[in-house]
Design a protein around this nucleic acid. Structure first.
Lengths: 350, 350
DNA sequence: CTGAAAGCGCTTACAG
DNA sequence: CTGAAAGCGCTTACAG
């Protein structure tokens, strides 16, 4: 097929062309495009043939103009540097969201630019999005406050403190800690340490940080055990390494360590090795966090309590779309329990 | 602020409202919005005030309707199941692309649905996208063929065989293998094995698979060394584990193994340990692939030749946008060399 | 420097 | 069941 000049690329086939070719009016074509009733079968067929023959595709923006929705969602993680984003967000968040959106014929935008209250509202006002999925929600979150106030649709992955009428799906961190401690106690462990989220996160009211520590403390309380934890970074092996040294300095009796990321768990195992303690013979290590390939890469492979970011983001996206399509839907609030996957890094006390 | 009913949410402030408030005509507001010349300073100020006061934001779709571009890009990886996508694509691909697009005021869509020739063309015809960034390009790639034939703009991350007038950025796999072998030979290694991409990939003409093996063979030839490789999967520790056993079965003399993913490298180290060979004392292992946290998680930490998917996808997106903005730009063709990061898994022969 | 008019491609009432 | 008319929110020539 010979190529046409690039100048006439943009002016594609329009609905008018189709109408002409089929010998009908434009509204009739529109009706057929939108599967409305009251169209003669014979007409429908003629028009569909014209559509096929001309290779006609409706113009996305024109369809959205009639006061209609943009059919677009956005996913937002509040982080300053987009480059950093790669280290804190799982690929599966993107693919889960994209997949659900695609299935329901929505578009999805991933917001990476610094978002201000104004630019957030503008997303809605400019009809760029119909709804936004919020990640990394704080107990008191400005995004939630402003969207609620303006009555713009959104859902949270995570949750804030005032939840009335709000739709969210969250990982049940508190319960996860209870499960982790239960698991370890059952193996005979009595000295269980924790390497958890940074103190700054907890002070900033970031859910996982607050709830993980709460859950851990509560679990140890239940068993009458002594707590022993460090609040550290979670995105490097290094931090797990140092945190473990500090933890053992403070409490050398530890026979089990819980971490909140697979990276710090790896560091923990390395630090134990450096102190002549093999995992799992001399100390158990388990990680509470997102699944993925990390757990198998570590030696010994990591016992985990894990969530699937794919499933969660997929579900969040479905919640968002349901909410948009059914205005009167009551708020949905979902807490997801993690799956226990026992690998090699934990062992019963003998 | 009291909440309004959801029914009047959609009808936002329009350009007409602004024009009225400022006492000017609609085109005048439009000119100011678009920074055109010939506007009296006094008028401009009055209008800007009205805009601010009303919280006006232009309607995205309406702007795009005037025959204009959609200002939207898409990223496409050809995979059947979107769920699988999480395991083959790095987060940084998304964030690098999203960041570059955002900076240049483009939107970006990540295509996860099964794409057919028709749906691919429809993306352009419906004005959903102005251009597409292609991942995982095959030597003979139907997407490339069809887009080239229709003269629609695209860029590749990777490259096909017929490159005339095509813009791409690709990882230089062939050179990477030369560098890896150079590095190991310099450490005194003479028996260097390779765990590379699946044979099916190579047969399908997927670039990295073809070029990595070529590069490896050529490098060993240069040094007059014997080649010894296995074509395996690259997305699990397991496959590296078994591939290494097979490799050593065939050639027990190996003192160094190159892998093409950090996951298989981890498996390789585990397999060597199972055979009583410690890394790096008894055998060196190095991985040629994407950077990220994996390298540090592995014990011992992995020596790598690594690329940054963030940088590469960022750059690809810039190439795409440049191409769209400057129609007469000549094709850009960029080959990226990997960075050598020496960690603990390689060692000189003593 | 500014406004009246036309039009982008489509959909939605309204007649018939 | 189908078409003529109006309009979505904006931009682009064209006058003045």
């Amino acid at each position: 097929m010979p190529q046409s000049k690039s100048s006439n690329l943009k002016q594609g086939i329009t609905i008018t062309d189709v109408a002409k070719a089929a010998g009908v009016s434009v509204p009739t074509v529109s009706r057929i495009l939108n599967n409305k009733e009251y169209v003669a079968d014979e007409t429908r067929e003629r028009v569909n043939q014209a559509i096929k023959q001309l290779g006609y595709v409706p113009h996305t923006q024109a369809r959205q103009l009639r006061g209609a929705a943009s059919q677009t969602l956005a996913l937002h993680h509040p982080i300053e540097s987009p480059h950093e984003l790669s280290t804190v967000i799982e690929t599966s968040y993107f693919t889960g969201t994209a997949e659900a959106a695609s299935e329901k014929e929505y578009f999805i935008n991933f917001l990476v630019s610094q978002l201000t209250p104004d630019s957030l509202l503008n997303m809605y006002r400019s009809n760029q999005v119909d709804g936004i999925i919020l990640l990394q929600v704080r107990m008191d979150d400005w995004r939630v406050n402003i969207l609620r106030e303006n009555n713009y649709p959104f859902v949270m992955i995570g949750r804030c403190s005032e939840l009335e009428d709000l739709t969210f799906i969250d990982l049940d961190f508190e319960n996860a800690m209870l499960l982790a401690v239960d698991f370890l106690v059952e193996l005979g462990h009595q000295n269980i340490g924790l390497l958890t989220y940074p103190q700054s996160w907890r002070k900033a009211g970031i859910g996982p940080a607050v709830r993980s520590l709460d859950g851990y403390k509560r679990a140890l309380d239940n068993y009458g055990l002594r707590s022993s934890y460090r609040e550290i970074g979670l995105n490097s092996v290094e931090e797990g390494y140092e945190g473990t040294h500090d933890l053992l300095q403070e409490n050398p009796e530890l026979t089990a360590i819980i971490t909140v990321s697979h990276l710090t768990a790896a560091g923990s195992i390395k630090a134990l090795a450096a102190r002549g303690r093999n995992v799992p013979q001399d100390c158990s290590v388990m990680s509470v966090g997102f699944g993925g390939n990390f757990a198998d890469v570590v030696t010994p492979s990591l016992t985990t309590l894990e969530w699937s970011p794919y499933e969660i983001s997929y579900q969040a996206t479905v919640l968002m779309i349901d909410k948009l399509r059914q205005k009167d839907l009551p708020a949905q609030q979902i807490l997801v329990a993690p799956n226990l996957v026992v690998r090699e890094s934990t062992k019963a006390i003998t």
